[in-house]
Design a protein around this nucleic acid. Structure first.
Length: 399
DNA sequence: TCTGGGGTCCTAGGACCC
DNA sequence: TCTGGGGTCCTAGGACCC
């Protein structure tokens, strides 16, 4: 019998802040936004949630709702470190651990009763181990498929443990409100409400064909399965495409081309370095801009062959900016690489003309520079990225 | 009180080829 | 002269998640 545990760290970022500063225990801790005017809440403690604060809420609103809240910036490296320790605990219980996000994992615990006893006992053991090794608290959902386990893990947070018994999958879903459906966001829920579908039972009464006609083949199929307690296959496959991206929201809107270009140049270099580190290559650049009225536009360009070095990425970004930007003030700019594949550009089938030889040589130099800066041999950067002595660096969270 | 950053997947339409 | 599907690649936008 297949059995999956879904494990979710409770208020993870806020819990780490309390762990590292125990005087925060029992207080409304709100992580996010750093010092930015335009930040949002990333995670907050359960004490803060009692004031109505929640994830993705603008920091200003959180401050208004919870004036005595303790606001902390995001320390992603520290969270990543603890996340790794927690994940390694999970690996002691089963070799099949899917790390879903920094604070969640899906464990295939099928056939582990001999080793760890009944599932609820095993879950309790995992909780103890995580608490002993890291001081953190987790919630666990247990079910015969990953989707139900995921739902179950969220029902009794914090420190929750919910088991969906074999054969009870459909009944379990029937007992839940539509608000508990994972994978149906505000848009889908709104559409369901419009159609008068206000309960799991009503949703269950609709045929697969009806659902597909309303929500499309994929969305309809998802809803059809999920309300029956069947696995829609949320974490099953390897990701089809990989992409990496970076974006920044300016402290104040920007309409100066020079500023935008220097931000793009820094982004091109950062993305290029990440791509090399992961041993990937890409032929597609994606530019994203958001105007002051929040209108968001993207543009992409795919080249016949992979990018070699950051120069080509930067040049493509510039031409995309030419094509898309209307010159109105921007609140955000972002750059990404899509269609990432394994293998460095050198291994791709490229024409060996002279220009490319030169490009390769400069890419090799660039890689050496990235490697050197990773080893801490001083910060090497292009002159254009150094803030002018009199000017302000408008980039946020970028020292 | 305005709305972060990093991802994945889906859809619809166009281009191009057979 | 007009009309077909099917397949693949690409683009832009949107939904959703943590």
């Amino acid at each position: 019998m297949p059995v999956f545990f879904h494990v979710d760290l409770d208020a993870f970022f806020a819990a780490v802040e309390v762990l590292d500063d125990p005087s925060l225990g029992g207080k409304p801790v709100i992580v996010g936004g750093s010092h930015s005017r335009r930040g949002v809440v990333s995670t907050c403690s359960y004490e803060a949630r009692r004031f109505g604060v929640h994830s993705a809420m603008p920091i200003g609103e959180a401050r208004r709702l919870c004036p005595k809240g303790i606001f902390r910036p995001v320390r992603m490296e520290r969270y990543a470190e603890l996340s790794s320790r927690v994940m390694s605990v999970f690996s002691d219980f089963t070799p099949d651990v899917i790390r879903v996000s920094i604070d969640e994992a899906s464990l295939d615990m099928s056939g582990t009763e001999r080793l760890w006893g009944p599932h609820e006992a095993a879950a309790a053991t995992i909780k103890h181990r995580v608490a002993a090794d890291t001081g953190l608290s987790i919630s666990i959902g247990i079910a015969s498929n990953r989707y139900l386990a995921k739902i179950a893990s969220g029902l009794e947070k914090p420190d929750g443990l919910v088991l969906v018994r074999q054969g009870q999958e459909a009944d379990f879903m029937l007992g839940l409100g539509l608000d508990k459906l994972w994978g149906a966001g505000p848009r889908t829920k709104g559409r369901l409400a419009e159609l008068g579908i206000d309960s799991m039972a009503t949703l269950l009464s609709l045929s697969a064909a009806t659902l597909a006609s309303i929500f499309g083949e994929s969305g309809g199929g998802f809803l059809y399965k999920v309300c029956r307690g069947m696995d829609p296959g949320i974490y099953s496959a390897e990701p089809k495409s990989r992409s990496i991206s970076t974006e920044t929201t300016f402290e104040r809107d920007v309409r100066d081309r020079q500023t935008l270009e220097s931000v793009l140049l820094g982004m091109a270099e950062e993305l290029c370095a990440r791509m090399y580190e992961d041993g990937l290559s890409s032929r597609t650049v994606v530019l994203k801009i958001r105007y002051d009225d929040f209108e968001t536009v993207s543009a992409r360009e795919t080249k016949p062959g992979p990018f070699i070095g950051s120069a080509g990425i930067y040049e493509t970004a510039q031409s995309l900016l030419d094509r898309k930007w209307e010159g109105r003030p921007l609140r955000l700019i972002g750059l990404g690489l899509a269609n990432l594949g394994v293998g460095t550009a050198e291994q791709g089938n490229l024409f060996e003309d002279d220009r490319e030889k030169v490009a390769k040589r400069s890419a090799a130099v660039e890689r050496a520079v990235f490697a050197a800066s990773r080893r801490g041999l001083g910060k090497i950067t292009r002159a254009r990225l150094v803030p002018k002595p009199d000017g302000k660096d408008t980039r946020q969270n970028k020292p």
